[in-house]
């Protein structure tokens, strides 16, 4: 049986910046090969510091990091070849052509000109940027710039893709397009590590998530387990017309409009009990669905603790 190795192994990682800020405090973290992993945390929690240490933009104060079993201190060139990075900030030369940006990036990773040109055509087409290949980067829209950075990161076919808030300030349609692409990439075997503020993104895409608070990992679980940690379940209930709602005063209800209300119910309190009480009001149910983004609540609760 083949054993799955870790894509990232972090042991005792600490970082104190020159101004005295302790960004990371003795972090241990393992990300399995093939995982779709989310790193969650408030601004300044240390997410970007971890990513920048992995990619070599920030020098760690202490600790060890291995990328696919390669120590980044002793084998950093080989380790870097396995990673592709999409940073939070737009960091391309705005005066360069889209095509040049991606072809040059492939060259820095050692792809010869022919391979780089072929790969650029394939990826720019996949990212819907081929038509824009001769434009300079500053002429691109915000969404195109994001796609350009993802294209650039994928040029050398990395086994590990690191995305630092890739869908920040990206419209809904484009965000869903990106999710689809990242899913396909993950399905084809790439390990993906992303940081994001969109918990919907984590719930829909990631298998594992870690929550970082003030430089420490406070939770590292499969996303499903994290959701189970919630004692409350939220439902959105649609009825023909809301009436006699006071008869349900034992439940936590928030009316949205004349037909819809939100129900927050304790897991131990069976939904069946509620459904048994509902007819007493005379309301006729037309739809019941769980409210998504439950992680949001968990995330907020954890950061409060």
């Amino acid at each position: 049986m083949t054993q799955i190795m870790n894509a990232i192994t972090i042991k005792g990682l600490s970082k104190t910046y020159k101004n005295g800020t302790q960004a990371l405090k003795n972090i241990d973290l393992e990300i399995r090969e093939g995982d779709f992993f989310a790193l969650l945390g408030a601004n300044g929690a240390g997410k970007t510091t971890i990513i920048n240490i992995l990619t070599g933009l920030v020098i760690k104060s202490s600790g060890n990091i291995k990328i696919f079993d390669m120590d980044i201190d002793h084998n950093h060139q080989a380790a870097k070849r396995l990673m592709g990075v999409v940073p939070q900030e737009f960091n391309v030369n705005v005066f360069e052509r889209v095509h040049d940006i991606v072809v040059n990036q492939a060259g820095y990773y050692g792809l010869n000109r022919k391979q780089a040109l072929d790969r650029a055509e394939e990826l720019l087409n996949a990212m819907d940027l081929w038509e824009k290949r001769n434009q300079v980067a500053r002429e691109l829209s915000g969404g195109m710039k994001r796609r350009l950075m993802i294209t650039r990161a994928l040029m050398h076919q990395p086994k590990l893709l690191i995305l630092d808030e890739p869908t920040a300030s990206v419209d809904v349609e484009l965000r869903h397009g990106m999710w689809k692409y990242l899913h396909r990439l993950n399905d084809s075997g790439s390990t993906i590590l992303l940081t994001t503020h969109y918990l919907e993104e984590v719930e829909q895409m990631c298998r594992t998530a870690a929550i970082i608070k003030e430089g420490q990992i406070i939770k590292n679980e499969p996303v499903k387990t994290l959701i189970q940690l919630l004692h409350l379940e939220e439902y959105i209930i649609t009825v023909k017309k809301i009436q006699n709602i006071k008869k349900l005063s034992q439940y936590q209800i928030m009316v949205i409009d004349d037909h819809t209300f939100e129900l927050e119910i304790d897991r131990e309190h069976q939904l069946n009990n509620f459904l048994a009480d509902l007819p007493k009001t005379g309301m006729k149910t037309t739809d019941i669905r769980t409210k998504g983004f439950r992680l949001e609540k968990l995330f907020i609760n954890m950061l409060k603790d």
């Binding site: 990619t55 060139q77 870097k80 360069e96 820095y108």
Partner: peptide
């Protein structure tokens, strides 16, 4: 310096180029 200013120097710094 322009590369540093625009941040595009990171293309090189994150790459395996020694």
């Amino acid at each position: 310096f322009s590369s540093k200013f625009m941040g595009s120097i990171e293309e090189l710094l994150v790459s395996p180029a020694p």
